[in-house]
Nucleic acid binder design. Sequence first.
DNA 1: CTTCATATACCTAATTCTAGGTATACGATT
DNA 2: AATCGTATACCTAGAATTAGGTATATGAAG
Lengths: 208, 208
Amino acid sequence: MEIKLIIIDDHKLFVDGLIAVLNNEIGIKVIGSGNNGSELFKLLEKGMRPDIVLLDINMPILDGVSTTKLLTKNYPKIKVLALSMHELSIDVTEMLDAGAKGYITKDIETNELITAIHAIKKGEQYFSENLPKDIKKWFYKEHSTKPYLTRREKEILNLLANGRTSLQMAEKLKLSRYTIDTHRKNIHKKLGIKTNTGLVNYIFKNIE
Amino acid sequence: MEIKLIIIDDHKLFVDGLIAVLNNEIGIKVIGSGNNGSELFKLLEKGMRPDIVLLDINMPILDGVSTTKLLTKNYPKIKVLALSMHELSIDVTEMLDAGAKGYITKDIETNELITAIHAIKKGEQYFSENLPKDIKKWFYKEHSTKPYLTRREKEILNLLANGRTSLQMAEKLKLSRYTIDTHRKNIHKKLGIKTNTGLVNYIFKNIE
DNA sequence: CTTCATATACCTAATTCTAGGTATACGATT
DNA sequence: AATCGTATACCTAGAATTAGGTATATGAAG
């Protein structure tokens, strides 16, 4: 029985390459592909039913996280294997919380990808071997809580992205600087990001 | 006469995929591959002589820019086609100044890549069609004049936008933390921005 | 009632950042 | 030769940030 795959990635070159490689593998068949989450749902609406979707995180129109959430909700039998350039804990967190069953980075060997696909098919979770152990450990620990940002946290993130200091935010929101710092501390903890510049990066890449 | 290619990219999956695709193309043959600049030079030292090197920008050990410079200097007949995730002007500038003959992003179609390879072989320059016109225009305009921000300053800004601390940047660039701080100070002064978060904001709004 | 999530606030201490200043080295230009 | 731009490096000191901890108040839910 072949494992049926759909590959979704905004880099067509990458998609073409993966299709070429995976269709040479016994037991695996790529039945479809697309460049963003919307295209995936179009395929599914036509009745296409893969076992696993290889899904890139950063995509236009409908990104990896949103796609995964919708997929997990509407097509719970289809498993998501997340693909990313980086081992960033932000990315891992978001994709796995959205329902992905595995996470691999694009610099793994082809045979590791095959291993991952088979593991996911068997119902296991799979993390690429180059993913730091502490990230995997952190995930298991954090998996029962949603890293959801509160209204106030988002408000503070927005001001941060506009280059404001805690003191400036405190003045604007009529709060203590300590309150701002506490919210910031909570944000760092929830998102697993250690620097304020990393937070701004996160905002631009995830919210905009 | 086949166009001989070497593909250098730290993402093995991508390399494998590209090899599979390109070896199916009439007139093109991938004669070698590697995951960083050093591996390329090892192949060249063994006597391998490609027409074109498809070269990723971001790589460990010896990155795209350095590789291109050495290649252009020591093997002037071999042409570089730069590969990147992004249309960042920093990347374009650096690679083209280093001697690359073309610049493409990884989200182009396979057939556009084939077009690019043939153009480069013919001695033309090639920019992927999805590269914003203003970047290409900017390149021609800027190629004879000095950029306001120096090469090093842009490099540091880019690392900052990825959430790196001065210490991390110093480690990455093999410099003193003091040197990084001096460049940062100069950047703040030139751009009139007082916070690092403000700088990241500037980068995302003005460069990407 | 208790529990939980969120908001507000504070303290401590280490790290990082910013901004002022200093300096030398090197290559290119005049 | 001098000058300039860039890169590299350092020092000082204050401001800002991060990360550990503490606490109370309020509203909603069980």
